[in-house]
Design a binder for these strands. Structure first.
Length: 454
RNA sequence: GACCCCUUCGUCUAGUGGCCUAGGACUCCAGGUUUUCAUCCUGGCAACACGGGUUCGAGUCCCGUAGGGGUCGCCA
């Protein structure tokens, strides 16, 4: 009922401004790190704007001179780029607006809607305080429905500090007016502010936009993300090997669903299906396992070229020098088994060095057993005698060997695999051998015998 | 403490009074496919916070309780 009511009212208020195009915005302060909670708000704003055929703007709230460095701004823009959040128009930098903010404060003062006072008698001088109208306030939240607050529960608040700088509330509202924002979609932590902001809009003689408040996202312990949760920044997810598209999709689904069973969705599908009414009003918990699964789905959707480019990049950062043609063959082997970008290097390491590690347990359980030396020696001879060494010939040769020797597949394949790769799991053995090549395969078998089976 | 908000499987969710013996996804478990691992296929475990109403009928509406969260800055 509540949902239905809110939907109606929300539509009605939009119809009133029928000629106005929907405009949303992302208004972060550039601090060098973008929290995924903020990024999710950006995603929802973007999705909503695109769904409505409207515009998505960026406003950089860079008034904190200490933290708002050019690097921080670049990091912010990079994060948006990584997610593919394209903006309409030029970003508005809040520092360029200070004069306008101050003039508006003067206007409110002149109209008697604000007053000056040394709040709390600090002796720091007088600040400008906005006078709340003294009436009950209510608005219809696009997600939460009807919200009300009694006059006695709302206090006057500072809009210009005694040092002459504008406070968030004033700047934020004024800039939203300047940018023509029709829908303010932001975190739940702003609901209380909304009552203040609505009063400001009215005092300023501006149309009050629609508001929608997104529930917070919480960590794996179900607690709010704090500064200590190291993995809450967008950059951390990138470092952990997640793809921007996958994180985007995952975050979009964290608090919203299309209403049917779709989960892995294209941008187009998400844009088409996205509505505020379908957003959840309770907090959502981040589940890295599901994110990892979804990332795997996106890794699978990558084209050969895209995957190779990513894999080369990963190799490069790991300091591994790779010959392109060979590396591409290796990538082809692991392409479908990788869940995150970070999985690649550990999975292909042994292809690029003779100095790879042997898994101790694998050596103990599969290699250091009676008869293994003989098996490896015979396999080596078979490989040496092969006219051509490729996937098909090694496959046939080993299968023949298994048959004639009367040994099980496992008794032959496992030792060979460990001898050439050091580990028990990996790509299909024969393609692996083919990529490795005959000489390397034989050398590795020899070395394994010397090292563990003498 | 005051004000506001939230509550369906472990997690993300579907559910707008009868279609719900509550559906899907991730995870986990079992079986199958596979030379290994992953994939893939099949099956399984698992939830309406609690208590009262309203109603012929409640996960869905109302009230209360409990739990959780947000806000109470000359931070944003």
């Amino acid at each position: 009922m509540n949902q239905q009511e809110s939907r109606l009212t929300f539509r009605k208020s939009r119809r009133r401004r029928y000629a106005v195009k929907v405009r949303t915005r992302f208004a972060p302060s550039p601090t060098g790190n973008v929290h995924i909670g903020n990024m999710r708000a950006a995603i929802y704003n973007w999705l909503f704007a695109r769904h409505m055929g409207g515009e998505f703007l960026l406003r950089v709230e860079d008034t904190d001179i200490e933290r708002s460095t050019p690097e921080a701004i670049k990091a912010l823009l990079d994060a948006m780029d990584w997610f593919g959040l394209d903006i309409d128009g030029e970003p508005l930098y809040q520092t360029t607006r200070q004069q306008a903010h101050l003039e508006a404060a003067e206007m409110l003062l002149a109209k008697g809607l604000a007053y000056k006072e040394d709040k709390g008698g600090t002796g720091q001088g007088e600040c400008v305080i906005f006078k709340m109208p003294g009436t009950d306030s209510s608005f219809v939240d696009g997600i939460k429905g009807e919200m009300t607050k009694k006059a006695e529960n709302m206090q006057d608040f500072v809009i210009v500090r005694s040092n002459g700088t504008p406070v968030f509330h004033l700047a934020n509202v004024l800039d939203d007016i300047e940018q023509g924002i029709t829908h303010v979609i932001r975190g739940d932590d702003h609901v209380e502010n909304t009552f203040r902001h609505i009063a400001l809009y009215k005092a300023l003689g501006a149309d009050v936009p629609n508001f929608a408040h997104l529930p917070m996202i919480v960590n794996a312990q179900g607690k709010p993300y704090s500064k200590r949760d190291g993995d809450a920044f967008v950059g951390d997810f990138r470092d952990k090997g997640f793809l921007g598209d996958a994180l985007f999709n995952y975050l979009a689904l964290l608090g919203w669903s299309p209403g049917d069973d779709r989960e892995v969705m294209t941008r187009k599908e998400m844009i088409e299906a996205f509505t505020l009414e379908r957003c959840q009003s309770s907090a959502a918990q981040v589940d890295l396992r599901k994110l990892t699964w979804m990332n795997g789905e996106y890794m699978l959707k990558l084209s050969r070229e895209e995957f190779d480019a990513i894999a080369f990049q990963a190799l490069e950062t790991a300091g591994i020098d790779a010959e392109p043609e060979y590396a591409e063959k290796v990538f082809g082997l692991v392409r479908e088994r990788v869940k995150t970008v970070a999985d690649i290097v550990p999975m292909v390491g042994y292809f690029f060095t003779e100095d790879f590690e042997y898994d101790e347990k694998a050596v103990r359980k599969k290699l250091q057993k009676d008869g293994v030396v003989e098996v490896l020696n015979q396999v080596k001879e078979i490989f040496q005698s092969l006219e051509v060494f490729n996937e098909a010939t090694t496959d046939k040769a080993l299968h023949d060997f298994v048959e004639t020797s009367g040994l099980g597949f496992g008794a032959v394949m496992a030792p060979v695999r460990i001898a050439v790769s050091g580990i028990q799991s990996g790509p299909d053995l024969f393609p692996l051998l083919a990529v490795l090549g005959r000489s390397r395969t034989i050398e590795r078998i020899d070395r394994t015998i010397d090292q563990f089976l003498q």
